[in-house]
């Protein structure tokens, strides 16, 4: 049986809305793509639609489980989470894009190294998840992140989202990746705005 912790804080609701919206956006985009396909596969579409129904139910149960951080000071410091996330993003992007290691080895290597290094220091030991989150931003392809500076931006947005969503989706796998995805979406939005300003589009 799922353990339910009821929460009232606005921050936990905001965190849930941010992560839940990203999940819905991701699945709905996939479903929409399958619908407008020239030869839609109805079995795949039916499967994805059933996933959507279970997603809605699952989100309701996840909402019931969000933590109640009564004391805002219990959260990790936002500067620390941004720094950790940027570090993970930049290191992983550098290894993945400029060596032959590839994204999987780069991300897991940076994630494991950060865990080992952070556990050596009492003040740092809780920050390795934020670094690992940043590594997923760094896994982005070079055709998405057009310039390395945008990896830093993606890491920064992820760090902010990490801080905002600390009491939502607690214990659920993939949360860090969802946060990273949100950070990359933010960076891509800035890239597109920048490109439209300088007249590329």
């Amino acid at each position: 049986m799922l353990e339910i912790k009821y929460a009232d804080s606005k921050t936990s609701k905001i965190g849930f809305i941010v992560l839940g919206s990203l999940l819905v956006l991701f699945l709905c985009t996939n479903i929409y793509e399958k619908i407008i396909d020239t030869n839609p596969n109805l079995y795949i579409l039916a499967l994805l639609l059933s996933f959507a129904i279970f997603l809605i139910i699952g989100l309701k149960k996840t909402y019931d489980m969000r933590l109640n951080h009564i004391n805002y000071d219990e959260r990790h410091n936002i500067i620390a989470t941004m720094s950790a996330s940027i570090t993970g993003a930049v290191l992983t992007y550098a290894l993945s894009s400029y060596t032959s290691l590839g994204p999987v080895i780069s991300s897991s290597l940076v994630g494991l190294s950060s865990y080992i290094l952070c556990s050596m220091n009492d003040r740092m030991k809780d920050h390795s998840p934020a670094v690992y989150c940043g590594t997923f931003v760094g896994m982005s392809s070079t055709f998405i992140i057009l310039h390395p500076v945008f990896v830093t931006l993606g890491g920064l947005f992820s760090g902010v989202l990490y801080h905002m969503t600390e009491d939502a989706f607690d214990g659920e796998g993939g949360k860090l990746g969802t946060i990273a995805f949100g950070g990359v979406c933010g960076a891509v939005t800035v890239i597109m705005l920048f490109a439209s300003i300088i007249g590329v589009f």
Binding site: F26, V137, E172, G173, K175, G177, T178, I179, A180, F181
Partner: peptide, 15 residues
Amino acid sequence: GYGGGLGIAACLSIV
């Protein structure tokens, strides 16, 4: 090519 794409799919599978 979006970073975090694997993670969000994993989170979807859990939910």
